[in-house]
């Protein structure tokens, strides 16, 4: 049964899990690296082939390539207006946190399928969420490719930003399911869910039933 973050304690669980995992330097660095990669990939998605060619070119210097790449990023170049830029960085940050949570869950909790159905489901959904970093532009590119679609995006109320908003929701849900899978366990010696230890989880970090 897939649960949704409906109560205040669900959101507190999610926040605490993220805070504890990102408090570990290794996972903080992982989250930052993934965030940067995701934000760059999303920013250049419309011109990906061209950007790769420029970055691999022998005739252009490093300084120019750096200036060129930064000019493609929201708020550093003209390509995106503020709303779109904020969404790109938000999706990047959520993707970084999602991947860090997933990595922590897999590595530190020594996860196996036998370890708990809830945890395994969280990992699967977490992986899907991590791969969804480019959901917005990816789905967008797919739809435009299929429909042939000039005008399609312009007819949407937010001209395609809807897809990025969907990606934000998917990533938040994915992180919640990962946190839910860690419910009852410990992160860096701290209980994931203080005061509720023993409600079904065990000391090995395996999730219980809710």
């Amino acid at each position: 049964m897939i649960s949704l973050p409906t109560s205040r304690s669900d959101w507190r669980l999610l926040g605490r899990t993220i805070r504890l995992v990102l408090g570990h330097p290794t996972y903080l660095v992982l989250a930052i690296v993934v965030m940067a990669l995701a934000a760059i990939l999303m920013s250049v998605s419309q011109n990906l082939r061209f950007v790769v060619e420029v970055l691999l070119s022998d005739s252009l210097g490093f300084g120019f390539k750096f200036e060129f790449l930064t000019s493609m990023l929201p708020f550093l170049g003209p390509q995106y207006e503020a709303t779109h830029g904020i969404l790109i960085y938000a999706i990047g940050a959520l993707t970084g946190a999602n991947v860090a949570l997933l990595a922590y869950h897999l590595i530190e909790h020594d996860l196996s399928v036998e370890g708990g159905g809830g945890s395994a489901a969280g990992v699967v959904l977490g992986t899907l969420g991590a791969g969804c970093a480019a959901c917005g532009p990816g789905i967008l590119a797919g739809i435009v490719g299929i429909v042939g679609g000039a005008g399609l995006l312009a007819n949407l109320p937010y001209e395609g930003l809807e897809f990025s908003m969907v990606a934000v929701v998917v990533l938040v849900l994915s992180m919640f399911w990962l946190a839910d899978g860690m419910r009852g366990g410990e992160i860096r010696g701290c209980p994931v869910e203080p005061g509720e230890m023993g409600l079904g989880g065990d000391s090995e970090g395996n999730a219980g039933t809710r």
Binding site: V34, A38, S45, L102, C132, A134
Partner: peptide, 16 residues
């Protein structure tokens, strides 16, 4: 994990 995330991203961006 990096591979899985990259796969998802790359798949999504393949159209580009």
């Amino acid at each position: 994990i990096a591979g899985a995330a990259s796969l998802g991203t790359a798949t999504s961006l393949a159209g580009c």
